[in-house]
């Protein structure tokens, strides 16, 4: 359920200060989300793919993640061209395949994959603790950072608790079927997991107080921006700028 296949050291890109990578990835995502033209979206995919090649993540895991994202996009391809309206380029029985619909589906597919490439290349290799501390240095609200850290730490504990309860039930002869009793038992177990989690949160807060916690988030992570971080960010900004220009003035580049 909670494997982390992207956590491995990758050369070059991994040595860029994580704060810069997070900022670049976020800027890229926002800009690509706003893009309206196909040429700009294509350029976005090209740059994003280049980043992905530089980061060289585990190919198997990457393909799996991309496949999951693209399953949603397949649904868009099925529904949007048939329901969009406008001038049609083909007819499938009673449905008309609309030109605008095809355009939109293609645009969404390109943008989604470009954003996914960028995040897999830049953000996925960052370990959760470094990610949280970078966000904190980037002035992210402390509460959200805590939420991220604790979610990561305790999701495994909760998963384990669920498995333990389930095993305990199985050991006493419980076999899940599709009947009311099964749903009742499962609901009870889920309820217990919530109750335990709630109680645990109280105990964890106590444990933090016991070690002198007084509401302020501190971390041992030391971030140092070096020249290469600025060079990388500059290059990324130039790439992003060219995508945005291409989106605003698409005609100019056709000569």
């Amino acid at each position: 359920m909670c494997d982390t296949p992207f956590l491995r050291e990758v050369p070059f890109l991994c040595r860029i200060d994580p704060r810069f990578r997070i900022v670049v990835a976020t800027a890229y995502a926002i800009a690509l989300a706003a893009i309206q033209n196909l040429p700009a979206a294509c350029l976005g995919v090209v740059f994003a793919f280049a980043l992905l090649l530089l980061a060289r993540p585990n190919p198997g895991a990457t393909c799996k993640r991309l496949a999951i994202i693209n399953i949603f996009i397949v649904f868009l391809w099925i529904t949007v061209p048939l329901t969009m309206g406008g001038d049609s380029i083909a007819a499938l029985g009673p449905f008309h395949v609309s030109r605008a619909g095809i355009f939109l589906a293609l645009l969404v597919a390109l943008k989604c994959n470009a954003i996914a490439f960028v995040f897999i290349a830049l953000v996925a290799p960052i370990t959760i603790s470094v990610l949280a501390h970078s966000l904190e240095r980037l002035r992210f609200p402390a509460k959200l950072v805590f939420l991220l850290l604790f979610a990561y730490r305790y999701i495994y504990v909760i998963e384990e608790e669920w498995k333990r309860l389930y095993t305990a039930a199985k050991l006493r002869g419980f076999r899940p079927k599709t009947n009311v009793r099964t749903y009742g038992v499962l609901a009870n177990m889920l309820g217990m997991v919530f109750v335990h989690s709630f109680e645990r949160s109280a105990r964890v807060y106590e444990a933090m107080q016991l070690r002198g916690f007084c509401g302020k988030f501190r971390s041992i992570a030391l971030f140092q921006s070096r020249l290469r971080d600025f060079v990388f960010t500059g290059a990324a900004a130039a790439a992003l700028g060219s995508i945005i220009l291409l989106d605003i003035f698409p005609g100019k580049f056709h000569g």
Binding site: S129, R200, G212, A221, L222
Partner: peptide
């Protein structure tokens, strides 16, 4: 504490062992 899972709430061991000293006001390094 009796239950170690309550005591260790940081993602990595180093973060956790450094949590107390940081609260005492020690510099990160």
């Amino acid at each position: 504490l009796q239950n170690a899972d309550d005591q260790l709430f940081c993602p990595t061991v180093l973060d956790d062992v450094a949590f107390g000293p940081l609260n005492l006001g020690l510099a990160p390094d």
